[in-house]
Design a protein around this nucleic acid. Structure first.
Lengths: 201, 201
DNA sequence: AGTTTTAGGTACACGACTGTATCTAAAACA
DNA sequence: TGTTTTAGATACAGTCGTGTACCTAAAACT
């Protein structure tokens, strides 16, 4: 019954990192597809082509698993501010954010944060285990870079101004369900971020 | 068995509008508490203290019911731009938005929009049946008002600038899970919206 | 008054997911 | 080679939600 074959393509048994990677990928994809509210051990196991028992050996519930998965799939590509092109670097950092936001991990994180039934502990774990590892958010990195070099008045870098780009991209994704195109990202930079940090386009 | 009593407080049977209102309230509360992914006919029925059969007579699934409920619980209080106080009116409109965002209806809507498993048709229904009834978003109403009176250059009212306030409030709620306090709302107005529309604080 | 409508309630078969137990054999190590 | 670890698989009882059928009695209308 089942597999008596063990040819080249036959069932080989994964272990350790190989298996973990497959499970993590499955968890994040499943969370992105179904939303955290509908995330189940069963679905993750099926997607990872493993047995549910294997999951229960390590995690007690789907959220626990998902948090490990998100932490493992980090870090995300970082914006690398270049020569002397504030506008271009801001645009590039927003593009990075859009790319991330449409990856399974990004969608899973957004869904976790927007979940009204979210657990405080889960969100905290998300921030400490996933975000804080990184050096701030996308446009933040760029803005700080240019503030250190005197191109921006450091006093204008407040929690609000540092968040404008991310906020507008997030809202746009929520409203349209699609990735903002480049024209829209340029408008965000020109019409919102640059005026707020006191740089005329 | 069950109720043979029918005293003053005994079981009276609701109908029509009374019943509908109770069901709508239950649906929105349930969606806000559990998230749309975990919304079930069963839970709505229990919360409304009615029988599941009653719900199935009118709606085929929880989302269908929820959309009716959101439409019925509209409209939301509108910002009413006053004398000649752009800053104050913007602040007031953001306060309205925060109030709405923390009502059960607001939480339900946010969760619907952020749901990665959301249905295109559902979101469209949300916009046509719920939002489009209103005259735009919160800060929009105010900004348009002052643009018509020449206090703001109409050319600066773009999709981006009209959305800055809402985007920052939404993001803040998602990040902290709490209602932004007044200081933060003031910062949003002073540091983001006013610079973007070209008005010095 | 009698009649129609419909809310409230019970029951049921079905499916999905849960946790746990148990067995097997592949992978890793000695 | 033999031993240990652990992935893969199957089974099972329990819970929860679904959708339908069916009955009853309250509310509304005549």
């Amino acid at each position: 019954m089942g597999f008596e074959v063990s040819e080249t393509g036959g069932r080989t048994r994964r272990r350790g990192k190989d298996l973990l990677d497959a499970i993590y990928a499955a968890a994040v994809e499943e969370a992105a597809a179904a939303g955290p509210g509908r995330l189940t051990m069963d679905a993750i196991a099926k997607r990872a082509a493993t047995a549910r028992t294997t999951l229960y050996r390590r995690w007690s519930d789907p959220l626990d698993l998902l948090l490990d998965a998100l932490a493992a799939l980090h870090p995300v590509e970082q914006p690398a501010p270049g020569a002397d092109d504030l506008r271009g670097d801001l645009l590039a950092s927003l593009r990075l954010m859009v790319d991330w936001g449409f990856s399974p991990a990004g969608r899973a994180v957004m869904a976790l944060l927007a979940d009204p039934a979210r657990d405080r502990a889960v969100v905290e774990a998300l921030f400490t285990r996933v975000f804080d590892q990184r050096g701030g958010t996308f446009t933040q990195t760029v803005l700080r870079h240019y503030a250190e070099r005197g191109r921006i008045d450091p006093a204008r870098l407040t929690p609000v101004t540092l968040d404008i780009g991310e906020a507008l991209v997030t809202k746009r994704i929520m409203d349209t369900g699609a990735a903002p195109d480049d024209d829209y990202l340029q408008d965000i930079v020109d019409q919102a971020i640059l005026p707020a940090v006191g740089v005329a386009p």
